[in-house]
Design a protein around this nucleic acid. Sequence first.
DNA 1: AGATCTACCTGGTTGC
DNA 2: TGCAACCAGGTAGATC
Length: 280
Amino acid sequence: MPELPEVQTIARGLMTELRGRRIMSFELLSSGAVEKGRGAMSPAQMSRYLPGALIRRVWRRGKMLCIDLITKREPLLHMCFHLKMTGRLVVVPAGSEPDRHTRIVFRLNDGRALHFADARKFGYCRVMAPDDLDRWPFYATLGPEPLEIGEDAFLRLFEGRRSQVKSLLLDQHFIAGIGNIYADESLFRAGILPHAQADSVEPQRLRALHSAIHDVLTEAIAANGSSISDYRDAHGDSGAFQNDFRVYGRYGEPCRICQTTLERRTVAGRTSTYCPTCQH
DNA sequence: AGATCTACCTGGTTGC
DNA sequence: TGCAACCAGGTAGATC
């Protein structure tokens, strides 16, 4: 389930593999993989615009991944992907057959191909001109980047918010890129219960949370992300951060700090695991 | 405003 | 072994 560190790892890998290459053809194997919407290119338009497009840059915003293209008709197009839970973007060698979950094939001028696969079909691709990217509601309303926001600005986000802390962390409009895994891990490190009411958490603990989020995300990026089931990077390789989880998915096991049995409850509709002793 | 529920989708796991 | 039930999860949208 790609969150910020996984998307960052994929973007980094794709940047290395794809920059300077050209897309030769676009083949949609599963209708619905191209998201419709105001300003979004239809598959027919993509078939006209993409062949010959030069891949200039691959970047990330929140959990969204974007490939910048230079085409004959448009000086810049943004090809955005949201991988949701099971989406993959993998560069495959020449002659590779798409697997059963591959939804889009982009053939490259060096014989290789970029495959967009998604077992659960929640993910999508969306191609837009720069103006349309800025007008895309999902993109335009994303919250700040957790690795860029300063401590003071981070604390200000919580002012007057009565929601449970974890539901705020999961809200992409509040802060972008954090999902269930890194929310649980950050809250544990900061000693805050996931269901704590935001405006009742002392500033000192919110500072700890700011720092915990930074540390968790940075460590996960260094480990090439976490692989639970479907996640693979641009080379098809797994990440390693799942070996460093302190609470996520460890319900019923002992806390690594105090040995208390970890508990779980549903917060913001998500299974949340925490230590009732270390977090309060 | 905030919490909760539903829809979307299917592979994997659990239970009978 | 076979099959049904259930769970996972990001986001949008509806409802209380």
